[in-house]
């Protein structure tokens, strides 16, 4: 049973997790040291996992930790450890990326952000754009709350191996292709200078 206290707690936890995720994502893309960036990326993944859990998607939250924080980040860290040469790499990186020169890109992504927010705001009329009114409009200022509908692993498994069986086969094929591709790319070729 949900107590009265539980309602604001979910909201507060969501805002904290979202702020942590956004802040650490911003720190990830601005670090010189690849290892620091990856550690911030792990924090982003964990915060997103917490948001999944708050949304009632506990299976997705577990997968987020196992696959993203556990497998993908480890791959990144292995490659970084192979290529990292300490201060030399950091000095090189600080010449490749200068925060002062990134203002243009920052303005461009801010424009993209505000444009998407405008498209989702009620200021933008969908019927004006020729979209039939049968499509219900989503809105960024929607205050409709999301009920915690817990969708467990059983329900996902039934859907995955029922109507979406073909998707499992396609995913298997995709992983096999990636395996062969990564194996081929990782081989040592004769030295070709570019």
């Amino acid at each position: 049973m949900m107590t009265i206290m539980a309602i604001p707690t979910t909201q507060i936890l969501f805002y904290i997790a979202a702020s942590v995720a956004l802040l650490s994502a911003l720190l990830t893309v601005t670090r010189y040291n690849a290892v620091h960036a990856l550690l911030y990326l792990v924090i982003t993944m964990l915060a997103i996992s917490l948001i999944f859990f708050l949304l009632g998607a506990s299976f997705a939250a577990a997968l987020q930790i196992i696959v993203y924080a556990g497998a993908i980040i480890v791959l990144f860290i292995f490659v970084t450890m192979m290529l990292h040469q300490g201060d030399v790499t950091i000095k090189q990186e600080s010449q490749l990326f200068r925060p002062g020169r990134s203002i243009g890109a920052g303005i461009l992504s801010l424009i993209l952000f505000f444009e998407t927010m405008f498209l989702l705001s009620p200021l933008y009329d969908l019927s004006q754009a020729g979209v039939s009114t049968a499509v219900s409009q989503v809105s960024v200022i929607s205050t409709k709350t999301i009920g915690v509908n817990v969708i467990g692993a059983k329900e996902i498994g039934l859907t995955l191996f029922g109507p979406y069986l073909l998707l499992v086969e396609i995913a298997a094929l995709l992983l096999l292709t990636a395996l062969i591709g990564a194996f081929h790319l990782g081989r040592r070729h004769q030295e070709v200078t570019i």
């Binding site: 309602i7 979910t10 909201q11 969501f14 805002y15 979202a18 995720a21 956004l22 994502a25 911003l26 893309v29 948001i51 708050l54 949304l55 992504s109 801010l110 993209l112 952000f113 998407t116 927010m117 989702l120 989503v138 809105s139 960024v140 200022i141 929607s142 205050t143 409709k144 709350t145 999301i146 009920g147």
Partner: peptide
Amino acid sequence: MITEGSLFFFSIALFCIG
């Protein structure tokens, strides 16, 4: 409770950081 709008905002902001 988490509102739909705040989730859209979060997702768009994260995408733009990327």
